[in-house]
């Protein structure tokens, strides 16, 4: 076995095992850490495919940023994970059956027959000074500039959606609104209401009886 093949099998085995532990781990922090391990190994597999930029981005963005954020959320939110995992064993047979079917079907189609080296020959090796990063950057800002700009808009949508669904002004907070204070005029502070003189209604018998009772005692 070539050394590269050995590395591939090593990385893939750890990747699959780590992914399995993500779903089966009882402690959510452990699950998140296994996900980090899975990402790291996936990055390694990409490195074997000489996609070094993607590999490093995966480690930096997913492991470095997304998963750390995720760990924070998991540790800070008080989620009852045992309750979330209720029914795991009940749904396991069905889920396992669907999963096994998916894997079987994918191996049939994605196996060596259609994606093997004779169907898709290995691309010619690039020159030593070939830079994957530079090439990606070039197409990203030229051929794919339209989808690239649109992806920025998708992120904007996500941001607007998140803010509009979660931002709440605190009712209890004692805010000062300077623009209202400045705009105050003396007419609006006190309103004088003119009204007719009110007399005690004469025919209020109930009140009269009450008053008599009070007087008699």
């Amino acid at each position: 076995m070539e050394f590269k093949t050995f590395v591939f099998y090593l990385l893939s085995t750890i990747l699959v095992l780590a992914a399995l532990r993500v779903v089966t781990a009882r402690n959510p922090v452990h699950a998140a850490l296994y996900l980090v391990l899975a990402f790291f190994n996936a990055g390694g597999v990409w490195l074997l495919l000489s996609a070094e930029f993607l590999a490093i981005t995966l480690v930096m963005v997913y492991v470095g940023a997304v998963m750390v954020l995720f760990l924070f959320v998991v540790m800070m939110l008080d989620i009852d994970f045992d309750r979330l995992r209720e029914g795991f064993w009940r749904y396991l047979p069905m889920g396992a059956l669907v999963g096994a079917l998916l894997v079987a079907e994918m191996t049939l189609v994605l196996g060596g027959r259609y994606f093997g080296l004779d169907a898709m020959p290995e691309p010619a090796a690039k020159a030593v000074d070939y830079s994957n990063t530079k090439e990606l950057g070039r197409v990203l800002y030229t051929d794919y500039v339209y989808p690239f700009e649109l992806a920025a808009f998708v992120l904007l949508v996500a941001m607007v959606a998140a803010v509009s669904l979660t931002l709440r002004r605190r009712r209890a907070g004692r805010y000062i609104a300077p623009e209202e204070q400045v705009a105050v005029r003396h007419e609006t502070r006190v309103t004088l209401v003119k009204m007719a003189v009110e007399k005690e209604p004469a025919g209020d018998e109930a009140a009269g009886v009450e008053a008599e009772k009070a007087g008699g005692q």
Partner: peptide, 30 residues
């Protein structure tokens, strides 16, 4: 973007832009 797409990538990005906005709009009465 979806309507004018000639490429799987633009088709998908347009679809996501539309769907993400719709998810937020459906939950708008939070």
């Amino acid at each position: 973007v979806m309507i004018d797409a000639n490429h799987l990538l633009t088709l998908y990005i347009g679809l996501e832009m539309m769907s993400l906005s719709l998810y937020a709009l459906v939950a708008f009465d939070r």
